[in-house]
């Protein structure tokens, strides 16, 4: 049996949970798939999961789970996993999963393979593909030891709309007592830093700069190109970390998600945390001096070369007519 642990935010299942269910269905072969959801109150979410083509939905409802802490979540999830004794436990590779899945697997003394992008084989014979060396290579990995084997699936690697829905699975509550003294963290409510002044989600064209731009003074040539294209300027995370452009122009998992008509990436390597924020763009152009950079995996058009030569030539070309 394969157990998918779904994740919610503000009483809504996230898309990544559906992607994990799609991965579970692909992995299952003959094995049944079950889903689990935990939180302060989860009845509506459990009902939604019950129609996801799963055999059963397991739930834990407890006030201690209303706001996320790794300790309370690990206690509850461990009870769910032990009651179901699955072969595989699949979770979406979200920030919350990063925070609690390694603790859960370590506490149970079981294998955890993170950030999986593809599966080969089904059931017990399965092997899992995950990126290593910043996406420069893909490793095929097998878990060792006893099941359950914990797997987290990369955001966007499986298609949420591929989930075979249907049925009306029974919902089974799992009883756990979460001892308040065992929960060491105290969480405050989530907040957004500054009100976002630019909504890059509305931009038709975006020029995004990465660390290939080398220094702050060179941002100006990217700005000039953006102006010539009628585009907004955006950036990868290190550029914003350095303060070369404001945080609100950051694209990726911790910044904005955009899908413009044109996304032109200058000196961006294409780390997965960047790609999730822009790979839905209609036309992607990458300019990078490294022909093997992962950004070319999602690019429609590419120029392998030095951006400091190509960008001025592009500006000149655009200004011609």
């Amino acid at each position: 049996m394969i157990l998918v642990i779904a994740e919610q935010r503000d009483g809504k299942l996230n898309r990544a949970s559906w992607e994990a269910i799609a991965a579970a269905q692909a992995l299952a072969g003959e094995l049944p798939v079950k889903a689990a959801i935990i939180g302060g109150s989860v009845a509506a979410l459990a009902a939604e999961l019950a129609s996801a083509g799963v055999a059963e939905v397991l739930t834990v409802e407890d006030p201690a789970l209303a706001s996320y802490t790794p300790d309370a979540h690990t206690i509850a999830l461990r009870a769910v996993v032990e009651s179901a004794s699955p072969t595989f436990v699949l979770m979406p590779h979200t920030y919350q999963t990063r925070d609690c899945a390694p603790m859960l697997a370590a506490r149970m003394g079981r294998a955890l393979i993170t950030d999986v992008t593809a599966l080969s084989g089904t059931g017990k014979d399965a092997a899992f593909t995950r990126p290593i060396f910043q996406g420069k290579l893909a490793a095929q990995v097998k878990p060792l030891g006893e099941p359950p084997f914990f797997i987290t699936v990369q955001i966007g690697a499986f298609r949420a709309d591929a989930v075979r829905k249907g049925g009306n699975a029974p919902v089974t509550p799992v009883t756990v007592s979460i001892d308040a003294a065992a929960v060491r963290q105290k969480a405050e409510p989530p907040f957004q830093e500054a009100k976002q002044a630019v909504d890059l989600g509305q931009a038709e064209r975006i020029v995004a700069v990465g660390r290939g731009i080398k220094s702050q003074e060179h941002i100006a040539i990217a700005e000039k190109l953006a102006a010539a294209l009628g585009a907004e300027l955006a950036a990868s995370r290190p550029i914003c970390d350095n303060g070369w452009l404001p945080m609100e122009r950051q694209i990726g998992s911790s910044g904005q998600t955009v899908a413009p008509k044109l996304y032109l990436a200058l000196g961006i390597s294409g780390a997965i945390q960047h790609l999730v924020g822009m790979k839905g763009s209609r036309t992607i152009v990458a300019i990078n001096k490294d022909a093997e950079a992962p950004i070319f995996e999602v690019a429609d058009y590419g120029i392998v070369g030095d951006l400091f030569e190509i960008v001025p030539a592009l500006i000149a070309e655009l200004e011609k007519n």
């Binding site: 294998a111 092997a127 490793a139 095929q140 990995v141 097998k142």
Partner: peptide
């Protein structure tokens, strides 16, 4: 707890 069985260039 895990074993790498092979490495390859990523698929596009």
């Amino acid at each position: 707890m895990q074993q790498v069985i092979g490495l390859a260039l990523p698929t596009r």
